[in-house]
Design a protein around this nucleic acid. Structure first.
Lengths: 186, 186
DNA sequence: AGATTTATGTCAATATAGTTGACGTAAATA
DNA sequence: TATTTACGTCAACTATATTGACATAAATCT
């Protein structure tokens, strides 16, 4: 750990990532792209770390988190839609979903229009946990927005959206629209 | 999958993520933070997906990728420094590192100043694979920068850096500085 | 010089999260 | 009626991580 800190540290009081802030206007060089790759790695690691610690108290892992999150965001979600979002197999989903159902964090009702479907809803307990988890992660974003110069704030969602495969963006946009409608009904 | 696309889709030709672009100036509401959480999830999923597909050809996984990446970025890295970066146990590292050593992608030499240390270097083959993998991920960033309005480009690294735990930022900054020095020597 | 600490390796058992493949069932649909 | 669809389930396997215990050689302290 000392080894990692032993070299010269540029701009120690700046918020920018080393040299990246210096060329803010033109992030196009190979070295800069490599830095972004690593920053993305570290940022994501810390981002999920918050939730991981809370989940430990419930004996749940990241897989449970993802399921609970999307069920809470889109109450009435079907198994098929959930599989589409998570991009895992039904066998893999089934294991964690079963645990969430048995532990009373998620509820499944037969579809009204198509009774083969199982519509997934968070229970009150599930909604509470989902909100606590989201609060942790939202808090990180809100703090970041606070630290960032106002001009950079709006860029975050544009940036993240642009990072998504272009073929996936419509789907993601549709998901966000669904979640927004569901959220408005609350 | 149709289910996901069945609802109304706002601003279908915009690059912005649904409503997020509209309030670009003030991303502070709960709903917006939730959208960022999900965008981060989807963006990271696609980001690592590129490399995953290439790694399959070599019988390697993400764990190998991370090791190879950091060894290539910081040739001469010690085991301890690598463990610090990856935040995994030595047992876990050892398994994938052994495979990389045996397959001839990484080389370990005894430290000169401290002969207990094993200094890790990429072999030519390892450096090539590392470069191919980085090229994929860098390409995504470069494409993103191209799609984004110029004013938003510099914000990406600031944003990602701010997303890192504040207690980790010094370490990350130091790592980037080390990598930069190593890169300059190339 | 001898004792201790450090850097690393290794064996073993376990957990989590994913996979493929095969098969079953009830409900919708052609 | 036949077929397809939405979902569940059993089984075996892989990848990646964990904890705990123990081993070794080199550096360092006293």
């Amino acid at each position: 750990m000392d080894e990692l800190l032993a070299r010269k540290i540029p701009e120690p009081n700046s918020v920018g990532a080393g040299s990246a802030a210096a060329h803010a206007a033109a992030v196009t060089s190979d070295g800069d792209a490599l830095e972004l790759v690593e920053l993305f790695f570290f940022a994501y690691r810390d981002f999920v770390g918050d939730a991981d610690r809370l989940l430990e108290n419930y004996g749940f892992g990241r897989a449970h988190h993802r399921v609970l999150h999307f069920v809470n965001r889109r109450p009435g979600l079907t198994i098929a839609a959930l599989l589409e979002i998570l991009r895992i197999t039904k066998q893999s989903l089934n294991r964690v979903l079963k645990q969430l159902l048995e532990a009373g964090f998620v509820d499944a009702r037969a579809g009204v229009v198509d009774r083969r479907q199982r519509l997934l809803y968070p229970t009150p307990k599930g909604a509470t946990l989902a909100r606590d988890l989201s609060a942790l992660q939202s808090a990180r974003f809100l703090k970041v927005m606070d630290e960032l110069p106002p001009a950079s704030r709006g860029a975050a969602s544009e940036f993240l959206f642009a990072m998504i495969d272009s073929g996936e963006r419509e789907r993601v946009r549709a998901h966000l629209a669904c979640a927004k409608i569901a959220g408005a009904a609350t």
